[in-house]
Design a protein around this nucleic acid. Sequence first.
DNA 1: CCTACCGATCGGTAGG
DNA 2: CCTACCGATCGGTAGG
Lengths: 207, 207
Amino acid sequence: MVETTRRREIEDAASSLFHEHGYSGTSVRDIARALDIQGASLYAHVTSKQDVLWSIVERTASRFEAAADAALAGADGPVPGPGSQLAALVRAHVGVITDDVRRASVFVHEWRSLSPDRRAAIGKRRDAYEGRFRTVIGDGIAAGTFAPVDQVVAAAFVLTSLNGLVAWYRPDGRLKPGPLAEAMADLTLRAVLIGPDDAPPDEVDAG
Amino acid sequence: MVETTRRREIEDAASSLFHEHGYSGTSVRDIARALDIQGASLYAHVTSKQDVLWSIVERTASRFEAAADAALAGADGPVPGPGSQLAALVRAHVGVITDDVRRASVFVHEWRSLSPDRRAAIGKRRDAYEGRFRTVIGDGIAAGTFAPVDQVVAAAFVLTSLNGLVAWYRPDGRLKPGPLAEAMADLTLRAVLIGPDDAPPDEVDAG
DNA sequence: CCTACCGATCGGTAGG
DNA sequence: CCTACCGATCGGTAGG
């Protein structure tokens, strides 16, 4: 838990390797080689390989949570309401991913390699995080802004597609973080916003 | 390549284990144990662990391709056009996943563990498959049925969320394959269909 | 499908 | 951060 430069370098190298080959597919010696030291030397800085994974996953989880907090707190812009809240959540989530794809990728894919206790702890936090999306979508449906979609499916649909970014986002690609976040927010809002083909929620207006 | 019962049992067991622990996280002895035989005995039926992965991935790729072919061929129902074609593609994709989540999960997540040649070959097929989604979305935009979204982003957005099913679909869950496919098709179409807030494509109708 | 075994590599420790 | 080393496990082979 001591915050040193070397420790961060280790987690950076491990994030890259876990991202590319997975936790099981990466050896302690692979990480050491990326830092030009011996495998055994790594244990001067970390207590175990699992410990490195945990640091990466736990810190990234906190980043997602903090970004969502900030997004919901500052979402009352020109057009308040569930629509702008959901858009803010999406932009925040995309921002955490584009800010560090490798760590985000490890968080998304390698939490299954955590020890049982840690895996359970992260599972709860992931569910609570996804719950924010469910709640905002539910609010939008109740307000008549969103179509009566299945909240659970819609939240999973959206979050999965955002998380999928870790597989195809390229920092040097055509789409920069800003426009990409806008495109994702646009697709997300379209998917849930009420449209002309949707039946009115409870009362029929007579034109 | 010989199609025996035992071979299928091996691939079934391997699919479950690869799905749960990943390719690298699964040993040959793990697979053997699931079949109540010795690790070395597995080699009477397969040539290598990599060979088992390849069979699973290759067959599943073919299933996705065949399902998409059938979907596009039979999509000219009551309301032809890009909308019904996209919906048909989505239903087909979801169907392949719900039909065998474990194999689908291995296809989606473990193709990175393939040998370089095989990985490249599957990569090309995956891109061609995703191209069908891009094309249909492009057709819809050209026809004025779909909003002018980014085809590449939209296709990735949709396909990723569908593939994400392998992580949360439960055969004994609340949503059965049929309704689930409908919900996914609904969200997908909403995300791309043109709405009241979209500017008209090229000419403004004067009310 | 078994027993017996191969060299290589794994995560990690001892002692400096 | 190093050398030297540990027991365990890895994918796979030999020979039946």
